[in-house]
Amino acid sequence: MAALVTALAHRVCRTTAIGVSLAVGSTLALAGTATAHSGNACGSVVSSVPVAKGLYQTAYSERNHVLWATSSVGEPPVTNSSLVKLDPHTLKVEAMYRPPVVNPKTGAVEAVYGIAVDDEHNTVWTTNTRDNSVGVYSQRTGKRLATLPGVHHAREVVVDEKRDLAWASSFADGSVIAFDTRTFKEKKRVTLAGLSPAGMAVDERTGTAYATDFANDRIIEIAPHAKSPRLIPTGDSPLSIALSKDGQTAYSADQAAGTVSVINLRKGAVIKTVPTGAGAKSVATDPRSGRVLVANRTTATVTVVDPREGTVVDSLTTGANTNHVHVAHGAAFVAAKSGSGPEGQDLLHRFPLGR
């Protein structure tokens, strides 16, 4: 085991812009074997690339084989923000699109934070948190197509391509809102006083949308034909949510507790709680293995969890302020707000996943 870990650690990709020495606890559970990933330009198992300052979230387009990312820097007025288009193998930046200016006097732009891809209509959806809106961009040209207001402190967005819906969390006013992905019109708004919707997920088989209720340690379940939302208890300060491949289990990253909760959705109850690391902020599932990945901001790690056994099977150190984890195309993409690039950029890490 020690020899394999050492071999993998020495195969970390070093870009021409910056040699990134990524500290690795053990890459075995993620990489599976030491075989080089054929799509990676330097033939390495792990790659890390400085992308942009203020890197927030990523989303993968299967239609275009592109990884999209959002970046925004600073407090209002935010003048530095980009929608970033990357090669998912090499993490090379292919294009950067600047959101439109909303205040010519200050230069403030419609800064982008959360992100989701709609391959059905070839668009990218973003949450414009500072401007209390959701944005829609063309994947083909990067042009901003629409700004949809009334999403107060918009946190996350997720797309149900089967039903032509984009669900967004309106953190500041307790709302979860669905927009038509064809017309960009609001289709549904669910508001409950005292709630703080944050992370979003959707089960495309049933059309049920889920949001974490950060302030009240719950999950908000919005089924298509239900008269009212169902509230399901979970861990302390759930910030992010992901679903199992069969849609029967939910996983929440519990920021205050530093845990991931495993929730049986039929029973409406937490069945396992697994410590992952301080500041658990983002969670994603690997549909091939069924394992769960949690990005822990404070401990600067990504934890790999076997949800059936309720155990941690691996942990990787990713650099300071791990912010988001996204699983797609057989890899985990991890955004870390470390500012350790040559010009203060944040790093994006790519870990090929074992089967």
Rank of each mutant, 00 (worst) to 15 (best):
L353R: 03
T206M: 01
H153W: 15
S21H: 13
V101F: 07
V66P: 01
A29D: 10
G330F: 05
T299D: 14
V124N: 08
G330S: 04
V5D: 12
A250I: 00
A201H: 01
A36E: 07
D164C: 05
K337C: 00
G290T: 01
L347D: 02
A332T: 00
L145D: 13
V305R: 03
A250K: 01
D236P: 04
N40K: 15
G247V: 02
G310K: 01
S169D: 12
A253Y: 03
V274K: 02
V5P: 00
T90G: 14
D173Q: 11
R230K: 15
H65V: 10
H349I: 02
S237A: 14
R350F: 00
A23D: 15
S71P: 08
G344C: 05
S289P: 08
P275L: 08
A295L: 10
G290F: 09
A201M: 02
E110Q: 09
C13S: 11
T181K: 02
K162S: 14
D119Q: 06
T123K: 07
A59N: 10
P76N: 08
G114R: 07
V190Y: 03
D314A: 13
I18P: 02
K105Y: 08
G54W: 08
A7M: 12
G268L: 09
E94N: 04
T318W: 03
A36D: 05
G194T: 11
A320Q: 00
R355Y: 00
S289C: 08
L22H: 04
I263A: 03
T27F: 13
Y137T: 03
K187F: 00
R266L: 11
N103L: 06
A154P: 06
D160G: 02
V102L: 14
V294G: 09
F214C: 06
V93N: 08
H326M: 04
T106R: 07
A278N: 15
H324M: 12
A29L: 02
A257I: 00
V302Y: 08
H121V: 09
V157E: 06
S138T: 07
V159E: 03
N216A: 09
E343Q: 05
V20L: 11
I219L: 15
R189C: 01
L22W: 01
T191Q: 15
R130P: 03
T206N: 01
A193F: 06
L145K: 08
L195E: 01
P197I: 05
T299Y: 05
V325Y: 06
G25C: 11
A193P: 00
R308S: 07
L28F: 07
F184P: 06
D246V: 02
T79W: 02
P88A: 05
L243C: 06
A168V: 15
G199V: 03
V51N: 05
M1V: 10
I271H: 01
N216V: 13
T301C: 02
D164H: 15
T129R: 12
T301Y: 09
R218V: 04
V134D: 05
D236H: 15
T234R: 06
I222Y: 13
A29V: 12
Q248P: 00
L231Q: 08
A41S: 12
R230E: 03
S169C: 12
D286A: 10
R63S: 12
K85A: 13
R11K: 10
I232S: 02
R98F: 00
V176L: 12
R144F: 07
A242Q: 03
F179D: 13
